[in-house]
Design a binder for these strands. Sequence first.
DNA 1: GACACAATATGATGTTTATCATATTCTTGG
DNA 2: CCAAGAATATGATAAACATCATATTGTGTC
Lengths: 196, 196
Amino acid sequence: MPWPEHHKAQTRERIVEAASAAFREAGISKVSVPDLMRRAGLTHGGFYAHFNSKDELLVEALPHAMSDSTANLDRVESAPARDLLAVANAYLSPQHVSHPEMGCPIAALGPELTRSAPTVRQSLAREIRKRLDQLLALIPRRMTAERKRQQAAGALACMVGGIVLARGMKQSEKPAFLADCRAFLAEALNETNAHT
Amino acid sequence: MPWPEHHKAQTRERIVEAASAAFREAGISKVSVPDLMRRAGLTHGGFYAHFNSKDELLVEALPHAMSDSTANLDRVESAPARDLLAVANAYLSPQHVSHPEMGCPIAALGPELTRSAPTVRQSLAREIRKRLDQLLALIPRRMTAERKRQQAAGALACMVGGIVLARGMKQSEKPAFLADCRAFLAEALNETNAHT
DNA sequence: GACACAATATGATGTTTATCATATTCTTGG
DNA sequence: CCAAGAATATGATAAACATCATATTGTGTC
């Protein structure tokens, strides 16, 4: 083996990292393989020594983006994920809106991923399920399983939709809208709410 | 005028209609001008007699898609928009998930529109504001303006995010997730909730 | 320090794209 | 039914794209 042990694996990782950010920033179809390789400090031809296709890269880049995103959101809260509302508040932040390249790939790429190859769609479905289960685990035990499911689903939907919408709004309207989404969730997730 | 009065305007409208559906179904970047014109029953070259660019078409196709979507959602409920919860329930339906080409363009194209030309982004911002105001108008007067804003924002976010997420999930998990989102909103929008 | 070969770079191919220039067709007023 | 001109179609162009074939470079081993 005339090369350092994990050299190729590291290069591959570098490509995945570049892709993970570039896709979230510019959209999958707007990032060409040459673009990508340039961002990773390489040239276009070498790509296919690492991946059989752009779709195969996507299947790896999506989970990477997802982990990156949750790591970055934890950093905003400076503590890893106390409760569901804390996670939602960090997610629905102006920083998240203005930095898609570090943020949630579902909010940045959801619809485009949905229309991608079957393997990519499967990866997306896995990641959504995982995120939903993560949120579920943050909800107090004393609630019924049904109610917990509803809160996790509703909160995640509100989070993703909130970012998608805020990114589409006039700059001046974004902060108030985000604050409204956070306030909505704060009340909806409040345990003192009346039950049925 | 050797041609029927509104012939050209009608053809233009046909292109906008084809675009409005095709974009929502396949994504903006995956629909080429030749594709588009074929779907409108024309050939590619004539496009630029109607629009100066694909972006200019987008600026028209987006409001068209938005009106089409709300019209279709009213049809699901068979009555035009009673209250916010009724609208949300129609929006968060399995039919909406499985028919993006007739559904909300924000859910189908939001992120891609956000990354489009400035004129397109402005059109998107306008449409979001309009939708938010429509929902706002459905909320009972007796609430404070602040609370109304929060409910409209939270509900719309939950609606858009709910569709984006459901479309990305495994087929078998979609209906339950949508039901959870609806139940979440039913409770969050319930006026009997405790205040603050 | 030369060899073997893995890791990357260069260069090429065929397709698809938006857009434009030119040709053709169709409709109505005469 | 003919002619004018608007409305569409045909054809062309240049750029960008994913992918592949081939050349080059860099590394540890002897």
